[in-house]
Design a protein around this nucleic acid. Structure first.
Lengths: 210, 210
DNA sequence: CACGTTACCGACGCCTGTGTCAGTAAACTG
DNA sequence: CAGTTTACTGACACAGGCGTCGGTAACGTG
């Protein structure tokens, strides 16, 4: 068996605790998750958690920052405004979204954010700013570009762009609630999502598919 | 002041308790809600709840049946397949959805269902069946009808119809998470939602607006 | 190898929510 | 207006999670 002796790893602990916490939240939800459970998964004693975090709430907050806020920053950063078509850019953004959010364990955190968000106003505010500035801003630039290049119809400019990502949120929600019972195929959903949106905003009369 | 004397009302109690529970859940969320709080709101003693329900979980389960499952049954029931255009029917269904779900206190229950659903598999299963049969079935009939009448493009038949209601779910989700910070105008969102979907599935080349 | 520092731990006490139970009084019966 | 039934109640005991604190042993230093 592995050595029972405890290793001291001051630097690695916080990340280990967050990983364990994600697993714990995944299985029990936030309310039923306990520091004891997190500690067990991390292979450390219960009290050790309190050396690095102020308690369950603080662990959760750190987890959200690490897994929801930070990744969004990256996405916003490395989207080069290369001179590809706006449609292509839009497809790429949706692709990233489905890959990073819908298909991953991130959905667990969204579930908890939905459930407990009102207790963490600072996190919600931060996330909101990230979404509106990074996500929504990105969409806005792509759509404007598409209109300017004659790819999209001009009246699209008036749309609340949140409708464009609606089907993706639907998919996340479905997976969270009914995933165990009747899982969605994200690939299929993404294809239909893109088709609907493109047919809805493209300049020319709709084509069968590509 | 109102008389402090306790009235005995065996028939009215369950409904009163459920109303109080909804208010309690609305304010505290599920985890932090307590039978004591529900009893206080209902103006009854703590133990009385246990005369009618087996505990907090049972109250919640009854509440979901009353407010999520039952209304859906009605919607599915009284949708007459009158000979109006498919587009008009679709607009009516979306209108009902935005009115009944997005703008109402039902959103609170969805929040809790998202958060705690996995602990109530029977409820989730029931809700799933209602949604797929009633909701999805209704959409399917409307879309097929629209295609048959030449209103919608035939390739729409292949779509996963859940993408059509995506933006509405996006709105619900946004209200739940960011509602306090940055509320959406459901009317505006609904208009844009309908515009996007219609432009995406209609037969003719898109028109500016109606 | 001896010593000091400190990462780590499990037992302790506190607190909050939960479900029950024996008692109270409102309604009903004659 | 007695007597019976039963809807209703607050006090109780119990359970489990939470954060702390004194002690233990792993690591660094000479």
């Amino acid at each position: 068996m592995a050595d029972k002796r405890v290793k001291r790893r001051k630097e690695a602990r916080p990340a280990e605790i967050l990983d364990a916490a994600l697993a714990e939240f995944e299985e029990h939800g936030f309310a039923k998750a306990t520091p004891a459970g997190i500690a067990r998964r991390a292979g450390i004693g219960r009290a050790t958690i309190y050396l690095y975090f102020d308690g369950k709430d603080a662990v959760f907050e750190a987890l959200l920052r690490q897994r929801l806020i930070a990744p969004l920053e990256e996405i916003g950063a490395d989207m080069p405004t290369a001179d590809e078509s706006a449609e292509r850019m839009l497809r790429r953004v949706f692709g990233i979204f489905y890959e990073e959010v819908v298909g991953s364990r991130t959905a667990v955190l969204m579930r908890i954010l939905i459930a407990e968000g009102h207790r963490f106003p600072s996190i919600v505010e931060l996330y909101h700013r990230q979404i509106t500035e990074t996500g929504y801003g990105l969409l806005r630039r792509i759509v404007d570009r598409g209109i300017a290049r004659g790819e999209f119809r001009p009246d699209i400019a008036e749309l609340d762009l949140r409708v464009l990502v609606g089907p993706a949120m639907m998919t996340v929600l479905w997976q969270i609630v009914f995933g165990a019972l009747d899982p969605i195929d994200p690939k299929r959903m993404m294809a239909d999502h893109i088709k609907l949106v493109m047919d809805g905003i493209r300049m020319r009369s709709p084509q069968p598919l590509c």
